[in-house]
Design a protein around this nucleic acid. Structure first.
Lengths: 251, 251
DNA sequence: CGATTCGTTGACATGCTTCAAACTTCGTGG
DNA sequence: CCACGAAGTTTGAAGCATGTCAACGAATCG
């Protein structure tokens, strides 16, 4: 298992966080003490395990160290609404109610290790500035999802979704053109407000158009330019220049 | 104008904030000094004026004192996406980018006065706990909107929208059964991801069913129970017991 | 190796958008 | 104060995208 390797070199373990603006542990925590405690707080989960459930007491938030998770809520009639997918380096578990309970559940999509950041460990200095930076990212995510759901058709949503994933993988040093989907079609549909069949059909159609190649959960983006055009409108700041290079590559 | 009356009694002016958990000025600011400065920071805007625009530098957030505002983003192709409506006591302007720029624009829907809360005035103590409480409300809002857009049809969205408004008016001491819409059909459609025509048609149909009476922007909810049923699933914590009394009234 | 979950494809129904037009309200300038 | 134009609202008709229902193939798991 990875546990052995991970517990040896603290600093090196944080390479996944660096592309996201430096290791959060170093940024948010002021004392070496706290950082030590933090390093012991990481957990490894197998696929399908809860990191936390809606309604539970919340005294921390998390960073994905490896693997991926999905955040979702369950409606009164048992329907699931996926709120987001989180990749290595992403912060999740920020959505806490006023009474410090979880607003949503988070479950692992594959074998995943996460880093716990107890609220109590936050240094006073970091709370104001940096906490806002983290919430900013979450709000931008939410706004982007709202924009997709309200204004885009199925093609636009799927294209946006894939483009977003590609950008996020790219920003972490992975390939932006070839990656695996860690979530099911069901999850994607739940996230984008589409039926599973629509997700499947749309992906097939994209493949027929030569925009991408898809086999089960394996995706290769062949024409990122066109994908972007289909995706249409993005929220201004959401994707900085991350995929501009990719765009140029395909020109 | 109201300016004269408003600048005289600081404490009494805050009655609009109290139903929302106490005047934010008293809660967030530690010094009397800061509170004095704050009181001078309120602004009155006429209908259709910007409180702030997307991309501007952000050094504060706001509370609606009277009137109402809408928050929205503009997509690359000029389309507008409304992100929320804010009533007296509501906090807005929390969605700030990492670089401290506005993520969205906010414009008044009627003659409106707002209270400025400069970030610099926040006391160190209040930043951690209370700031999170405020962001929690914002995130709950966002999640609820996502849920509506992803899972509900036009009827459900409109019903939810009206129910939400009714609850929020009720929590502020206004009638939950009779109120004015401060926003246009266009705005409602922009918010709920529906065409204006659909909004209009749905309202008309609700009236024909005897659920409500609507005349231009005047709304009377006749059968809140049925409205709730149509609205369907709500996010768990979003509406506490606020409208339970209303429910019972119509039983 | 069977059972179950996941993904794909087809046919059909329908809810919403789009386009078009009429009416009302409101603001502005004559 | 009235007239006019612009904006907001309502209603109808038609087209289409997406959901629903159903069936099948493929991969995964115990």
């Amino acid at each position: 298992m990875l546990t052995q390797a991970q517990s040896s070199h603290l600093v090196h373990e944080c390479h996944v966080c660096e592309p996201r603006g430096g290791c959060l542990g170093m940024v948010l925590l002021n004392s070496e003490d706290a950082y030590q405690q933090l390093s012991h707080a990481k957990r490894i989960n197998r696929k399908g395990e809860f990191v936390f459930r809606e309604g539970e007491d919340a005294d921390c938030f998390y960073v994905v160290r490896s693997g991926s998770v999905k955040s979702y809520m369950v409606t009164e009639d048992g329907e699931e609404q996926v709120l987001g997918f989180y990749l290595p380096g992403d912060v999740f578990g920020m959505d806490v109610t006023e009474s410090q309970h979880r607003m949503s559940s988070t479950i692992t999509l594959e074998t995943t290790s996460v880093c716990r950041f107890p609220h109590a460990f936050l240094s006073a200095k970091s709370e104001g500035v940096n906490l806002l930076k983290i919430t900013a990212e979450q709000m931008q995510r939410d706004h982007n999802l709202v924009l997709m759901l309200a204004r885009k058709d199925a093609d636009g949503r799927i294209a946006s979704f894939l483009d977003d994933l590609a950008c996020r993988y790219w920003s972490r040093g992975y390939s932006a053109t070839s990656f695996f989907l860690t979530m099911s079609r069901q999850d994607i549909g739940c996230y984008l407000g589409l039926a599973v069949e629509t997700v499947s059909r749309t992906l097939t159609r994209f493949q027929e158009c030569g925009v991408l190649r898809v086999n089960r959960r394996e995706v290769d983006i062949l024409d990122h330019d066109t994908l972007r055009k289909i995706a249409g409108t993005r929220v201004s700041n959401v994707s900085p220049d991350c995929c501009k290079t990719v765009e140029l590559k395909s020109v």
